[in-house]
Design a binder for these strands. Structure first.
Lengths: 214, 214
DNA sequence: GTCTATAGCAGGATAGAC
DNA sequence: GTCTATCCTGCTATAGAC
């Protein structure tokens, strides 16, 4: 009675596929493993998605994209009552949305890992990731920050700054095992707060480099 | 006559394995593909390395590690005539060593891609990468920078800054396709110079966040 | 829409000749 | 050290019963 009898199988497959693709990577995961974890039949993937690659793209279109929407909503809701947010407010909201936002720790990790794979080993989903998510999000961040910068700020340098800030934030997420080893402790709530604080202050100062162009 | 008749096959396999593992990832590459590209026999991998995973680890031990050594040497040689380098000199040398150092563009990309894979999808080589390379390199950077910071600088915050700077630099290397799309142009020499300049100034300013702890 | 069965193939690994 | 031949496993994908 909980579900209106609609395709539960398809959803379970998408859930498990996202998790497994994120953790192990596309080639390392077999359809057998996915359907096994989803408690469905081996043939279900081919029935619902045609083939394995299509399932992978389906994960991006039907799961990953929806998550980015939630992250972005969280980001904007933090700024909702601020018609003209300051730079630290913008950066802080961004870092919080990514590191402590609406996703569970596991979701967040999988989300960034999937993105990460496409960025460093471009595949069929990269174009979508960049054009539908990264480009618009980068632009929105620029537009929010630019009013607080000198009028003659170089557009190209501003873009580099935004990429740096996002790159830094992503890095702290996907390289979590390495960061833990380097810092000598786990990703608990206290450490996440420290990270958000660090990213905000580091990026805020970093942006001041824009004010001193010759 | 060029080579003293020693195991040329083994070396060719390592070369091609590194390239292919970096470009496609461990699971996506077959032994057949590697030995084919290396102009050697299918059985050569098993003869020289025992199995596929051992070849992968061999790539890290016999190729990847050697490259990090060259990058580090390049870094130190830039600072050789400066007994007490300033912060921008240290950061600039680091960025140059990574983005425009002793490696060819292709080598550099493969090098960072391999590292990237281990960081975001931890495997058998991660421990080695972190313990033998990242930990000591992070520490060396800290030791070079600390003398230029206030005495009471928080060690943990300094660590986070170093990780941020390296993360940013790595990001600009491995996410090259995405960065190109976001910036609207290619990675030519001019753009690399701009990147080095950007990283140096952004990181220099970012570090000033350490001076204002309450 | 779900399942079984199986085709058809590619993969890692090894044995044994040279 | 190199090569061929081969084993065996596991994969994707599909056909066809239910």
């Amino acid at each position: 009675m909980t579900q209106p009898t609609t395709d539960n199988t398809r959803e379970r497959i998408l859930d498990q596929a996202e998790r497994l693709f994120a953790v192990k990577g596309y080639e390392a995961v077999s359809i057998r493993e996915i359907t096994g974890a989803a408690d469905s039949n081996l043939a279900a993937v081919n029935y619902h998605f045609g083939n394995k690659m299509n399932l992978y793209l389906g994960v991006f279109h039907e799961r990953w994209l929806e998550r980015t929407r939630r992250i972005r909503e969280n980001f904007f809701s933090q700024l909702a009552d601020k018609p003209e947010p300051t730079v630290p407010e913008v950066i802080g909201a961004m870092a919080r949305a990514f590191l402590d936002g609406p996703l569970s720790d596991e979701e967040r990790l999988h989300h960034v890992q999937l993105m990460q794979r496409e960025l460093s080993h471009p595949g069929d989903a990269l174009k979508m990731v960049v054009e539908e998510v990264m480009l618009p999000y980068n632009q929105q961040l620029r537009d929010l920050i630019r009013p607080n910068l000198p009028k003659n700020t170089d557009e190209e340098r501003l873009r580099l700054c935004i990429i740096s800030i996002l790159g830094m934030t992503l890095y702290f997420t996907f390289a979590r095992p390495a960061v833990s080893m380097l810092m000598g402790h786990d990703y608990n709530d206290q450490f996440k707060s420290l990270l958000i604080e660090h990213i905000t202050s580091f990026a805020l100062k970093g942006l001041t480099a824009l004010k001193e162009e010759k």
